[in-house]
Each structure stands twice: as structure tokens, then as C-alpha cells.
Computed example of a mutant assay.
Amino acid sequence: MATTHALWGMALALPVLATTPEYAPIAFLAGLGGGLAPDFDLYAGHRKTLHFPVYASIAAIPAMVLAAIVPTAVTVALAVGLAAAALHTVSDILGGGLELRPWEGSSERAVYSHYHGRWLRPRRLVRYDGAPEDFALAGIAAVPITLVGDALITTIAAALVAVSAVYVLLRKWLAALAPRLARLLPAPLRPYVPARYLDI
């Protein structure tokens, strides 16, 4: 779930809170943004256009080193944001495939590696986005954030957990509803809808 990625991105700010607490607020927000950012490609080459499992991981390393040597709001935000984006794209490999109903296990595309020039296969340790184990991962990340974060950060984390819970409850129903709604769209809009919603 995007919410799980966001929460784990925020969790990457916990070391900042412990070492340079003055930069913790920007670090939490950068983790949130970095955790969500790769999924902005949802309707334009999902898990390929903005997903860079190798390159994002490589970029995060010097950013983290720089933030450790020269901690400023900018360097810390850049380091946490890049690390969160890298964590997002790498962890997508551990989930299900890129399909409308990933619990069926019919897709061997988890995330595209631009470095390798091919799709990496899903490992399905988390069976699909919105699975109970996905919700458990969201909860694990949320606990320390809510325990040590300020009021804003705690509210954001709690809201993400609430959205996650609703999504988990509705996940399979939404997969059945999406193609029906997609078919109702006017023909000029259909090229902008992911193929997985139309090829049912």
C-alpha cells in the first residue's frame, strides 16, 4: 500500500530525531514524500516510470553521508527523501505482481529495474497490496512514529493507519469495481486508464 511506503519512509526519520532533533520535522515530512513519490507514476507506467530500485538506492548513499557530515534542513531532507524512495522501490519486489488482482499470482512483473533493463519478479512475501501482512507492516512502522513524533506527525501516522485499515477491508471489492467504472469512461479518456483495469 502507498500508506505502508509512506509510514516506512517516515520511520527513516527516527534516527534524525535521535541525533539532530531540530531537523526531525523536515525529516519526517521528507520521508513521507519520498515514500509516496514513486507511486505518482500510477497512471503512467506504474512501477516503471518513477521506480528506480538500483539508482535510487545508489543516490541515497552519498546523500546520507553528506547529511551525516553536514546536517542541514536541506541535506537531511534530501537524504531521508531519497532513502524513502529507494526503500519503496526495493520493497515493491517483496510484494505481489503488477496486476489488478495480485492475489491470483498471474504477473511476474514486480518493479522495473532501469539498471538491469528488465522487470524484476515479485517475491510475494507480502501477497498483495492491502493484504493483512501489508497492514501489519504499516502498523509496525506507525508505532514508534506515534510514540515519539510531535502532534502533527502523530496525526499523519494515525491517519495513514486508518486509511490503510479501510483499504485492507475494501481491497478485493475495489478490484472488482475498478474495471466496471473504467468501462463507463468515455472513449477519449480510456487511453489514460491502466490496461489492467480494461483487460478483464
Rank of each mutant, 00 (worst) to 15 (best):
S107H: 05
L185F: 12
L14G: 08
A158H: 04
L152C: 09
A56E: 05
A79T: 10
Y192D: 07
P62W: 04
L174Q: 09
R127S: 13
V70N: 13
T3K: 01
A83C: 10
W119I: 04
G9M: 00
L36V: 12
A182Y: 05
A182R: 06
L147H: 05
V90R: 08
M10N: 03
H46L: 10
R121A: 14
T4C: 09
R127H: 12
A157Y: 04
Y43C: 15
A187Y: 15
A67Y: 01
L14P: 05
P25N: 06
V16G: 05
L147W: 11
V161M: 08
A138E: 01
Y197W: 15
L137D: 04
Y128R: 07
V168S: 06
D39L: 04
I61K: 06
L184Q: 12
L14A: 06
T146I: 15
A182P: 09
E133N: 12
T4A: 12
G97W: 01
S57D: 05
V76G: 00
Y43D: 09
P38E: 01
V111E: 02
A84W: 00
V148E: 15
S107R: 05
A162V: 11
V166P: 09
T155K: 13
T20D: 10
E104F: 14
I58R: 06
R190T: 11
D134Q: 03
A59R: 09
D92V: 02
R190Q: 11
A138Q: 04
A2S: 15
I200V: 15
G35I: 00
A182C: 03
V163C: 07
A86W: 03
W119Y: 09
D92F: 08
G105Y: 06
G105I: 09
F135G: 12
F40M: 13
G35Y: 00
G96Y: 03
D39W: 06
A67P: 01
G9W: 00
A136W: 14
W103M: 03
A68N: 04
A83V: 05
G81I: 01
I93G: 05
G31T: 01
A110W: 03
A18N: 12
T146N: 13
M10L: 10
I156K: 03
I140R: 12
S164R: 09
V76Q: 02
I93R: 13
L160N: 07
A158E: 10
R190I: 11
A27N: 04
L66R: 03
L78F: 01
K172T: 11
A131G: 07
A27E: 06
L94V: 06
G130P: 04
T154R: 15
H114V: 07
V148W: 14
D92K: 02
L42P: 01
L147C: 08
R190Y: 12
W119L: 10
L29N: 07
D41Q: 06
W103G: 00
Y197H: 12
A187S: 13
H5C: 08
A176D: 15
L66G: 03
V80R: 01
V111Y: 00
Y167R: 06
D150L: 05
G97I: 00
A131Y: 09
A37C: 11
S106K: 15
L125D: 10
L189D: 07
I140V: 15
V54D: 08
R124P: 03
I156S: 04
I69T: 14
Y112H: 06
H46W: 03
A162T: 09
S91Q: 14
E99H: 09
A44M: 14
L78H: 00
L170P: 01
A18H: 09
D39F: 02
F135R: 12
A24Y: 09
V16A: 05
A13P: 03
